[in-house]
């Protein structure tokens, strides 16, 4: 398994490839079935956000290993319009696309660590980590 692999998100079908790769990596790292589903779902949400709002970007996976922990890092990078008000998009139920508004706060709950940085006109970078229990 390569330590880092990325999937470019340009069209709708890329969302499926991103989450398939996410599931595959989670499986290889021997996450529990539930955590596999959590990771895959989080990847799907992140990839869809890129497709919907930024049009182009990528999802990268990286295997993390510390002294007593193993985990999977999932990061989403795009060069889209950026987010004006981060606290607003982190609210449950907030949506501009007519979706359920569960996206980003949902991802935060699905993963163990969540970090978002965004600059208007520059793009958005979201880093998340799930540790193996």
């Amino acid at each position: 398994m390569t330590p880092q692999s990325c999937v470019k998100i340009r069209e709708e079908w890329d969302i499926v490839s991103a989450r398939q790769l996410g599931r595959e990596m989670a499986k290889k790292l021997r996450f529990s079935t539930v955590d596999q589903a959590r990771i895959t779902t989080a990847v799907s949400e992140l990839a869809r956000n890129i497709y919907l709002y930024a049009e182009e970007g990528q999802i990268c996976f990286e295997v993390l290993e510390t002294a007593d922990h193993k985990g999977l890092s999932v990061s989403a990078t795009d060069t889209g319009p950026g987010i004006t008000d981060i606290s607003q998009v982190m609210q449950d139920g907030f949506t501009t696309s007519g979706g359920l508004g569960a996206g980003l706060p949902g991802v935060k709950r699905l993963m163990d660590e969540f970090d978002i940085q965004s600059e208007v006109g520059q793009g958005t970078q979201i880093n998340t980590v799930k540790w193996i229990r």
């Binding site: 079935t33 539930v34 589903a37 949902g106 709950r109 699905l110």
Partner: peptide
């Protein structure tokens, strides 16, 4: 609906 799917839906707040 599979248990794992149910749990992710709950996490998502759905």
């Amino acid at each position: 609906i599979q248990p794992a799917v149910a749990m992710t839906l709950i996490d998502l707040g759905i």
